[in-house]
Amino acid sequence: MRAVDCDADEIAAWLRLLETPQVGRESARRLLTAFGSPQAVLAASEARRKEVIGAVAARALSQAGDGHDALLRLTLEWLAKTDGPQRHLVALGDPDYPAALLETADPPLLLYAIGRVELLRGESLAIVGSRNPTPQGRENAQAFAAELGRAGLTIVSGLALGIDGAAHTGALENAASTVAVVGTGLDRAYPKSHLALARRIADEGLIVSEYSLGTPPLAENFPQRNRIIAGLSRGTLVVEAALQSGSLITARLAVEAGREVFAIPGSIHSPQSKGCHALIKQGAKLVEAARDILEELRWPGLDDAVANTKTTTPSAEHPIVEAMGYDPISLDELVNRTGWSAAELNVRLLELELDGVVARLPGQCFQRIGQG
Rank of each mutant, 00 (worst) to 15 (best):
L31V: 12
D187C: 03
G152K: 12
Q371H: 15
R234T: 06
G84N: 09
L349R: 02
R200E: 15
A60Q: 05
P95V: 08
A126I: 05
A60Y: 08
D83G: 03
L109Y: 07
E322H: 09
A257T: 01
A28K: 00
G363K: 09
P133T: 06
A99F: 07
P95I: 07
G283D: 15
I114A: 13
A8P: 14
N308H: 14
D304W: 05
R252I: 00
L161H: 01
G170D: 00
R73L: 12
L153P: 06
A44L: 07
D7L: 15
R2M: 10
A8M: 11
V255N: 08
G275P: 02
L195T: 15
N221S: 09
Q63E: 14
V181G: 00
G122I: 15
A145Y: 01
R259A: 02
H168G: 05
L218A: 11
E123Y: 04
E322W: 05
D187F: 02
A202R: 08
A251F: 02
Q364W: 06
A3F: 05
L72A: 08
R121C: 09
A242F: 08
A278S: 11
T250S: 10
V238N: 04
N346V: 14
A34L: 15
A145Q: 04
A100N: 00
L15I: 05
A44N: 00
P217F: 01
A141Q: 06
V181F: 00
I163Q: 03
P265A: 07
A166F: 02
V52R: 05
T184M: 05
L294G: 03
A305M: 06
T104I: 10
P328T: 03
I11N: 07
V287F: 03
A13R: 14
G372Q: 11
A44F: 09
N336E: 15
A202N: 06
I201P: 00
T312D: 15
H168N: 02
D304L: 12
I53K: 02
Y97I: 04
V179L: 10
R25L: 14
Q22G: 06
P108E: 08
I329L: 10
D7E: 13
L125G: 04
L248V: 11
L350V: 03
L186T: 01
P216R: 02
E256L: 13
G275F: 13
P300W: 06
G235H: 02
P98V: 14
